[in-house]
Simulated assay, not measured.
Amino acid sequence: MTDSVDSPHRRTKAAGKRQRLTAATARVLHEQGVERTTIADIARAADVPAGNVYYYFKTKDELVQAALAEHTGHLEELTGILDRLPCPRERLKGLIDAWVGRRETAARFGCPMGTLAVELDKRTGGGLDLAAGQVIRRLLDWVEQQFRLLGVTDPEGRALALVGAYQGMSLLSNALRDPEIMTREGARLVRELDSLA
C-alpha cells in the first residue's frame, strides 16, 4: 500500500524541509542581506531544489517573515533558558555571555536582528520593518523585566542602554572586523551589572 497524499510521513518530511528553508533563510539573509540574497542562495543553503522554495514561500517577503519568525524563536529559546537561572542579574549576565559567544559571527556580519531591521527600514512598504522592530521589542521587554525584578531605578532606560550597547558593540565589531570588541565590551557590561545595588 502506498502513502496517501496527506500521510503523517509526508507532513513530517514537509515540515522538516520548511524548517530547513526557514533556518537557511535567516542565516543567508544575515550573511548577505535581503537585497543581495536570491531564492537560489536560500535553496542551496537549505539543500533543496530552487523550485521547492516556491512551494513553501511564494515571495521574498514571505521568506523574510520566516526569517523573523526564526529569530523570534531563537530569542524565545534563549530567554527561556535564561529564565531558569536563579536571579535576574544572572539572567542578564547570561544574555551578555550569549552575545559575546557570538562575537565571531558579529565581527563578520553584525547583529542578525539589528542589521536586518536597518535593511528592512530602507525598503518601501510591506511592514516588514515594523515586524523586525517587534522582535527587538521582545528583547527590550525581557531585559526591562529583569531590571525591574532587580529593583533598579528606570528599568526601561537601563534596558535601552543595555540593548543599545549590544547593538553598538556588534556594529563596531563588524565595522572593524574585531571580535574582541565584543569580549571587552561584554566584560564592561558585566561589571556594570555587578555594580548595581
Results as ranks from 00 to 15, higher is better:
R138K: 05
L162Y: 05
T59R: 13
E35L: 14
C87T: 10
I136V: 09
R191I: 02
R148V: 08
T25K: 14
S195Y: 06
L68N: 01
C87R: 14
L150T: 04
T153K: 15
E180K: 06
M1G: 14
R137G: 00
D121W: 11
L29H: 06
A175K: 10
V190Y: 06
V135Y: 07
D97F: 08
Q146K: 10
D97Y: 08
V53M: 06
I96F: 11
K122A: 14
T38F: 05
E180C: 01
V53D: 03
R138M: 08
G157M: 09
G16L: 02
D121V: 05
N52G: 02
L196K: 00
V163L: 05
T25P: 14
T37F: 09
Q145K: 12
R158Y: 03
D129S: 15
E144M: 10
N52I: 00
I96L: 14
R188A: 10
H30F: 01
A24R: 01
R103N: 02
P179A: 07
M182H: 14
R89S: 07
E185C: 13
A15T: 03
L82H: 10
I181E: 01
D61E: 14
V5S: 03
R20D: 13
T59V: 04
A161L: 15
D194T: 02
A187F: 13
A45P: 13
K60S: 12
L85Q: 13
D41T: 02
Q32C: 13
D154W: 03
L171N: 05
R20G: 06
R103W: 01
A45H: 11
T59P: 13
Q146M: 10
T153D: 15
V64Q: 05
D3N: 06
V143D: 00
Q65I: 07
K122Y: 11
R18Y: 00
R27L: 14
R103H: 04
T22V: 12
D121C: 10
I136M: 06
I96N: 11
R102S: 11
L92E: 04
H71C: 05
V143Q: 00
V118E: 12
V143I: 03
Q146H: 07
